[in-house]
Design a protein around this nucleic acid. Structure first.
Length: 297
DNA sequence: GACTCGTGGGT
DNA sequence: TACCCAAGAGT
């Protein structure tokens, strides 16, 4: 099926050249560091929420050296409500690692990128493709869905990333650096704005005539009902989030009494505070009050 | 592999 | 309203 894959790549990349969103980390004057920051922020967080935070962040800490010197409290406040604040800690540690081991420059090879805190298979590939224009097999949730539909004929990919998907993505990715990098950006974009999870806009799709899922009459998700739903109400994550929101908004250390109402169960609040301290997101002073950590973690 | 980890908008 | 889901990583 190389011919079909080549047609898919050609159509999607041509479409992308016309309609790509004008995102700041795609600007011609972008830096590898700016790309890396965007990728970490975009992990599980929508573009619309990341963009303003990214702009402020890059203005304040334009290089890894700048971020490496920042206090943890400043980093966590700048992260604001992007969610999963441990990512912010990892990004700061990532900056320090880049300064210590790579002379302040974002590395461009796979192994060095993967060794950075907060950088996994996806992010390493994305940085190689988007920051350095290298061929990398970039597979995120958008690409998984796009390939599931167009090639595999399924409504949605399997709940967890499979070897078969990885192999398929490797096969579809074109061999040349420039084309592969374009395909990486274009396939993600199509999944994000047209081939969406809930209400795909097939009428606007440049490859609708090639789509196996469409040809099969849009069969329903075979994994429906077996997908684990993310619990939220009453969970530790909700309580942790409330604690972090209070501490971000506080000007100084906060007494435990002011944190009592973030959860119904005092034991849960206690457990969450201990976990946040353990994670390096919160510090408890000698007087017992809580605050965002001052020194770099 | 199964779990955990935030937040807010769309349907 | 309740649920779904978003450029994943680390344990």
């Amino acid at each position: 099926m190389p011919t079909d894959h080549a047609r898919l790549v050609d159509r999607v990349t041509t479409w992308y050249d016309d309609v790509a969103r004008d995102l700041p980390w795609r600007s011609p004057d972008r830096t590898p560091w700016g790309v890396l920051v965007s990728e970490v922020m975009l992990q599980q967080t929508p573009v619309v929420r990341v963009e303003p935070v990214w702009r402020t962040w890059m203005s304040r800490w334009p290089t890894p050296t700048d971020l490496a010197a920042a206090s943890t409290a400043d980093v966590l406040r700048a992260w604001d409500r992007l969610g999963y604040p441990r990512r912010a800690l990892r990004l700061a540690e990532c900056a320090r690692t880049i300064v210590d081991r790579h002379g302040g420059e974002v590395p461009d090879d796979e192994a060095a990128l993967r060794a950075l805190p907060g950088v996994g298979e996806y992010t390493a590939a994305a940085v190689r493709a988007f920051a350095f224009g290298r061929r990398a097999v970039v597979v995120d949730t958008n690409v998984r869905r796009l390939l599931a539909r167009t090639v595999a004929g399924a409504a949605l990919p399997a709940p967890s990333y499979t070897v078969a998907e990885r192999t398929l993505a490797e096969t579809v990715a074109p061999p040349e650096d420039v084309t592969a990098a374009r395909w990486a950006a274009a396939s993600m974009e199509l999944g994000a704005v047209v081939c969406t999870a809930r209400a795909p806009r097939c009428g606007a799709c440049p490859v609708r005539d090639l789509c196996t899922w469409r040809a099969a009459g849009h069969p329903p998700d075979a994994h429906a009902g077996r997908r684990r739903v993310q619990a939220w109400h009453g969970t530790d994550r909700q309580v942790r989030g409330r604690v972090m929101a209070v501490l971000r908004g506080a000007t100084g250390p906060v007494h435990r009494d002011l944190l009592a109402d973030v959860g119904k169960d005092p034991a849960q609040v206690e457990r969450c505070l201990a976990g946040l301290v353990e994670d390096g997101l919160v510090e408890q002073g000698a007087d017992g009050r809580y605050a965002l950590p001052l020194a770099p973690a």
